[in-house]
Design a protein around this nucleic acid. Structure first.
Length: 267
DNA sequence: TTTTTGATAGTCT
DNA sequence: GACTATCAAAAAG
């Protein structure tokens, strides 16, 4: 049963043979370009226009709560293997502040092979599988075991491709066409729309060639931000209530709005 | 409109 | 063996 979906997934990722999956990750050790010595070319210009505004490591090096807010308005870019670029403005995030956070996978200082990305340097991705069938995408922040979950995007570029990826990957088969608002309004939806899967785990958002962050274009002023309780944290006592979810007020692209929180926020 | 429920598999106890 | 940082279809109001 799951086979069909499985194959679709693989087809998306590697149009050609399967092999390399088991072998050592080809990405990890070579953060610096293998051929560092080409004297003329700055790496910043090697890939013409697209990387111009890529945010570097400094941006990610701030506490989870700050980073979660700073993400709002920035543009997440995904470059597919065929060169297609998908863009979406981040409109909703959640902060997971570290070992003391009962709702975090790093609670109590747990460090496992799965959540290792949370403990790696700021800007490292932590991608995990949820409910056996979906992915969630986090970005490590300053602080051990602290990170930010990306929950929703406003799709800007490549909507057609996103729709295609979403309807191919999602269960419930072909069905109706998805509305724009359904493309990226949820942590696993945005992963589907941008073809983000487990192979992105532990990659560096500051240097990766297939996924990166761009500073929001100037002129787009500070958005009004709502702080609300995080989603899907039934347990975790007091930590479930804390206002660690942030979203752009009034944005139609947000996954879950919290009217009560918006009332209280009238400051 | 809101709520309930089934799908599905890696990870941890 | 229990538990998910979810999604979408079906059922209920």
């Amino acid at each position: 049963m799951g086979q069909k979906k499985q194959r679709l997934l693989e087809a998306e990722q590697h149009p050609s043979p399967p092999d390399r999956a088991q072998t050592l990750s080809p990405l990890e050790p070579c953060l610096r370009p293998p051929a560092t010595l080409s004297p003329q070319r700055s790496i910043y210009f090697s890939s013409p226009k697209s990387h111009s505004a890529q945010l570097g490591s400094e941006f990610f090096d701030q506490p989870a709560v700050h980073l979660a807010r700073a993400f709002l308005g920035q543009v997440l870019v995904r470059r597919l293997e065929d060169g297609t670029e998908l863009r979406g403005r981040i409109v909703e995030t959640e902060a997971y502040v570290g070992p003391e956070d009962e709702a975090a996978h790093s609670r109590g200082g747990r460090l496992t092979p799965r959540n290792r990305g949370m403990f790696m340097k700021p800007g490292t991705l932590y991608v995990y599988i949820i409910y056996g069938m979906y992915f969630c995408m986090n970005v490590s922040s300053r602080g051990d075991g602290a990170c930010v979950l990306l929950r929703a995007l406003e799709p800007l570029e490549g909507l057609g491709t996103m729709r295609q990826l979403r309807s191919t990957l999602r269960r419930g088969a072909a069905g109706r066409a998805l509305k724009d608002r359904e493309l990226c309004s949820g942590p696993s939806k945005l992963c589907q729309a941008l073809a983000i899967d487990k192979s992105f785990d532990q990659r560096d958002l500051a240097t990766d060639k297939a996924v990166w962050l761009e500073r929001s274009p100037p002129g787009s002023g500070e958005p009004a931000v709502v702080a609300a309780a995080r989603v899907g944290i039934g347990h975790a006592g007091e930590w479930a209530q804390k206002p660690l979810r942030f979203y752009v007020q009034g944005s139609p692209w947000v996954s879950v709005v919290d009217r009560a929180a918006e009332q209280n926020a009238r400051t």
